[in-house]
Design a protein around this nucleic acid. Structure first.
Lengths: 341, 341
DNA sequence: CATACTTATTAAAGTAGTTTAATAAGTATT
DNA sequence: AATACTTATTAAACTACTTTAATAAGTATG
């Protein structure tokens, strides 16, 4: 209730963002197309396009074919006008990827990890990146732990960083917009971004991994964090009389492999059923390295024994690493296109 | 991506809405207070307040005590300026409640139910209500079935109304804004509205009932509907080797009552654990008629055997009928305060 | 009780968008 | 080739908010 209302002075930012987003998602557009898509008057679009062209933010692609009248000038976004960096914080190292507004990778590399070596080492590394690529306009960090509003809530094994505001720290240091996100949430965002844009779907990204399973959850297009940043900890779902999800998918030494697989298929199917009965998501995404088509078909069939097929989510496999990177890219780009200059 | 942007012509509506919402939630305010809370300039607030006062939409409460300078005029919203009707569609009858902008009930009554008697009978009844209360400015329908965007997707037992656009039907007929919501979703919204405003919490309203249990789910303050409007159908969550939630809470004839209750407590606790591992909601609300403090304490204790206490939701009991009505009231009022006149 | 100081209100100028009309540049038709 | 017709662009008038300055109405103090 009673929040601030968007005032005329916020309009410049909104219009810039709209033009950038439209040009990037459509590839190119004419002024009329922009005006219609954004619901902004033609003269205003003209003014902004002119400014952006002078700044070098736009490319002119020449004239359209005539549709019966004067030919229109076609514009595209200059993808190298601004760059962003995705940084994957891990135990011993920090992988970074520099990319442009089209998502094209400019450089990949490895920095010392801040979790072990401390934050200053990492900061210096970032500083040198910014020196070499002065067009870098935002930073996107991926973290294997809980994050809320740029603050690290919890990373298993690195208690000294609990409640550390990574976003604030780097924003004050580099005067650049920063976003911080959990790895699973970034992955589900990345997958969301990649797929054909359904309007605000619900998605669950299921990851097994060595440290126990976890899930990144999107509801109506928004990341779910939960009241204590515990959402997605599906290990704990009690699916059997005396086993939860984690226990049910753990390989039992010295048992029949075929039976064991069937048991694990049933466990995943029950989890899918739980997710469906609670959230009814559009899709559940698995890590391509952890499943195959045969397994997915089996899980799908088994799930139908718990809940009518029509309500079950689509089950798909995807490249986790790629989706994770893609999610951070998207978060970083969102910061770039929201810049108010 | 690339949606319409709020243009200056939308501002009037936004400002009106802001002033109304602030006055109703704060009780009263001065022009300066409104200006600061809404981030709108003082002259603009003055203009709008003047218009609203002339229309009779505002009450002047006299002058404030001086805080060292000229005393400020204090304004309040005239709660009877606009009315709204909440209509509970049920099998054999339709209960209606007419209330004002403060939520004060003006009249309660019963109409023929449209599910059995057809829509025209109900429409005529509403027409006569509007004739008697010409200040009615919106209609809010509660439906015991799935709803999406004002369209009834599914009501068990009334197949002829599947895919019927109730909102569109009554909006064209009465030229009034209409909102339609499922009963569980309305209840969870109503509870959300009642409690001290945490910022966008996640809540689950758990209802047992005769036709099997169901849940209304709010994530980040938004209603969860799911891809096929199946979300909240928690009956189907598989919690035991051979029983899902519905089966586990069904009373088994001829068994020991105490054991039976313990079993049901365990079933609910497991559901809470599942909800926590997936959504990690702030609270789970039960119908006051279906639980008591002793049960809640038992469920709470039992849940802690599945998931660490710190992550578990707060368990509370509330009046379902009241929350349901309150939710519809809120939805109807939201339409009133968004009116652009 | 006059003066200084606060705070509310009113008035005027400024800003940034929209709408509407005029102009420019092209295509199709006779 | 002249005319009618489209469509893109430019220019001028308009709208609605904000900012800034001026005024009004009150309180506290020497």
């Amino acid at each position: 209730m009673s929040e601030k209302i968007s005032t005329p002075k916020d309009m410049k930012k909104e219009i810039l963002r709209g033009i950038r987003a439209t040009l990037l998602s459509c590839g190119s557009a004419t002024k009329v197309e922009l005006s219609e898509k954004l619901g902004i008057s033609f003269p205003t679009i003209t003014k902004f396009i002119h400014q952006m062209e002078e700044a070098g933010e736009l490319l002119t692609l020449g004239l359209d074919e005539s549709s019966g009248g004067r030919r229109a000038q076609r514009y595209a976004y200059n993808p190298d006008y601004q760059l962003s960096v995705a940084l994957f914080l891990e135990r011993t190292e920090t992988q970074y990827t520099i990319y442009n507004s089209m998502g094209e990778v400019k450089e990949k590399g490895i920095s010392p990890g801040f979790l072990l070596d401390g934050i200053e080492t990492l900061a210096e590394q970032i500083e040198s990146l910014i020196k070499r690529f002065p067009r870098i306009g935002s930073l996107a960090f991926g973290v294997p732990g809980s994050v809320n509003g740029g603050r690290i809530i919890y990373i298993p094994g690195y208690e000294k960083y609990h409640d550390f505001d990574l976003k604030d720290h780097f924003e004050t240091r580099f005067k650049l917009p920063v976003v911080v996100e959990n790895d699973m949430n970034a992955a589900v965002l990345g997958y969301y971004d990649k797929m054909d844009v359904q309007d605000n779907p619900s998605l669950v990204y299921l990851y097994f991994g060595q440290n126990g399973p976890g899930a990144g959850i999107l509801v109506n297009g928004n990341v779910v964090r939960g009241s204590t940043s515990f959402s997605g900890e599906v290990s704990f779902v009690p699916l059997y009389d005396r086993r939860n999800f984690q226990q049910a998918i753990t390989y039992v030494e010295g048992t029949n492999a075929a039976i064991n697989e069937a048991d694990r298929i049933d466990a995943v199917s029950r989890l899918i059923a739980s997710l469906t009965a609670i959230l009814n998501p559009n899709a559940v995404i698995f890590n391509r390295d952890e499943v195959n088509d045969r397994l997915l078909t089996a899980i799908s069939a088994r799930s139908a024994s718990y809940i009518s097929k029509e309500h079950l989510p689509k089950l798909t496999a995807s490249d986790w690493q790629e989706d994770y990177l893609n999610g951070l890219k998207r978060l970083g780009l969102n910061l770039l296109i929201s810049a108010d200059h």
